[in-house]
């Protein structure tokens, strides 16, 4: 069982939350200009790292807030989301969406 820190309520038991899946890049503003391949890539391809993954969580049985945190897909360790860049690229030094150990 994970202990998840809701930005509003603080540390709570995982059973109060529903996982909303991995954080995806923002919706392209120029969707109509994209090639079919890029658009379909945006629609269906999600990050699937063996490592840290930015994830959306919903405090469904609590305050109802949606927020983003980072969870390690091998150890299930949880830590606060380290940035607002969700382009899927690694940020400053340590890989946010993580490499393959």
């Amino acid at each position: 069982m994970l202990i998840i820190t809701c930005p509003w309520c603080g540390a709570r038991d995982e059973s109060e939350f529903i996982c909303g899946g991995p954080e995806k890049p923002p919706r392209p503003e120029n969707a109509s200009d994209l090639s079919d391949g890029d658009w379909i890539d945006y629609l269906i391809v999600s990050p699937n790292p063996t490592g840290w993954l930015a994830e959306k969580w919903w405090h469904a049985n609590g305050c109802g807030r949606w927020f983003t945190l980072e969870r390690h897909t091998v150890t299930h360790e949880v830590r606060p989301f380290s940035g607002d860049d969700v382009s899927g690229e690694a940020v400053s030094g340590e890989g946010k969406h993580a490499s393959h150990p």
Partner: peptide, 13 residues
């Protein structure tokens, strides 16, 4: 498990 995972184990919930 309800989330992505590479851990080959069992989740208590």
């Amino acid at each position: 498990d309800p989330q992505q995972s590479f851990r080959r184990g069992i989740k208590e919930s």
